[in-house]
């Protein structure tokens, strides 16, 4: 790691102020992506602002029609939370598939969303459930939050505080994990909430997580795996790397979407 200054934030306001003051700085949540990145010297921020001690950022609660998860809530907490399991079981199941147990014990939902890794799981859940990302400054709908590879709508000193997931009628997530990293080679999140049907794909898109309108239309008419028969995603615009070609990923999107729909139906 390159040298950096370290600041421990007392609360969200303090954290935002520290971020602003420090200039070239990064927010440290669980650190499960950030620290490996620093260790490999792929990034060298001048300062880290640690929000690990900000208690108000953790927690899971049902508020009205929304499941509200604090940004510093660990993956393991989401995976095992009775509240999550009852409200959106697919979200708990998704959290259970992230990385490995030690990563789940330390990594946070806010960190994952803010990082917006194109193969991360949570962005699919956010987009697939039509979540709202609440920050220190505003509320951002998931559809406007994810901007591209590792890019989000977040400003430099803006901090995610909560994620609001509308509780759907049903939802499902299916992923084909990279066997080494457990990142999604392709992951598809499917949900329906009244007439709102969403299909969100992670792991595949060159620009990160995206929705598949054609599949959503088909599922609106008939919410079943069968309804997706014959709907193919084009390889154009999909990732191609040593793990899988764009064609392979396109095929997987179809397969995973069906599995997700089947588990949600």
């Amino acid at each position: 790691m390159y040298k950096f200054a370290y600041h421990k934030a007392k609360n969200v306001k303090d954290a935002a102020a520290l971020l602003k003051k420090a200039g070239d700085s990064k927010l440290l949540a669980g650190g499960q992506t950030l620290i490996p990145t620093l260790k490999l010297r792929l990034a060298g921020p001048a300062a880290l602002v640690d929000i690990g001690g900000v208690k108000e950022l953790s927690g899971i609660a049902l508020k009205g029609k929304d499941l509200v998860i604090g940004a510093m809530t660990r993956h393991a907490e989401v995976a095992t939370s009775k509240v999550v399991r009852k409200a959106i079981p697919a979200l708990a199941a998704l959290a259970e598939t992230i990385g490995d147990p030690a990563v789940r014990n330390q990594g946070t939902i806010g960190g994952s969303i803010a990082n917006n890794d194109p193969a991360a799981d949570y962005p699919a859940a956010c987009l697939g459930l039509g979540a709202t990302i609440v920050t220190s400054k505003r509320k951002i709908p998931a559809d406007k939050f994810f901007k591209g590879l590792f890019e989000t709508a977040l400003g430099d000193d803006e901090i995610i505080t909560e994620v609001h997931f509308p509780v759907p009628k049903s939802a499902g997530y299916a992923k084909f994990p990279n066997p080494a990293s457990r990142y999604a080679l392709v992951g598809v999140f499917v949900s329906r909430n009244g007439s709102d049907v969403r299909v969100a794909v992670t792991g595949a898109g060159e620009g990160g997580v995206f929705r598949v309108a054609e599949m959503e239309k088909a599922l609106q008419k008939d919410f079943s795996a069968k309804a997706l028969d014959g709907i193919a995603v084009k390889p154009r615009g999909l990732n191609s790397d040593i793990h899988a070609s764009a064609e392979y990923r396109a095929h997987l999107v179809g397969v995973m979407a069906k599995r997700a729909a089947a588990s949600a139906a």
């Binding site: 370290y6 421990k8 440290l28 650190g31 499960q32 620290i35 490996p36 260790k39 880290l48 640690d50 690990g52 393991a76 147990p101 030690a102 990563v103 014990n105 330390q106």
Partner: peptide, 18 residues
């Protein structure tokens, strides 16, 4: 892997200050 407050974590992916 060590236990931090009872949770198993990777001590190579946690700053001492954390």
């Amino acid at each position: 892997v060590v236990h931090v407050n009872g949770r198993a974590v990777k001590s190579c992916t946690l700053l001492a200050v954390q």
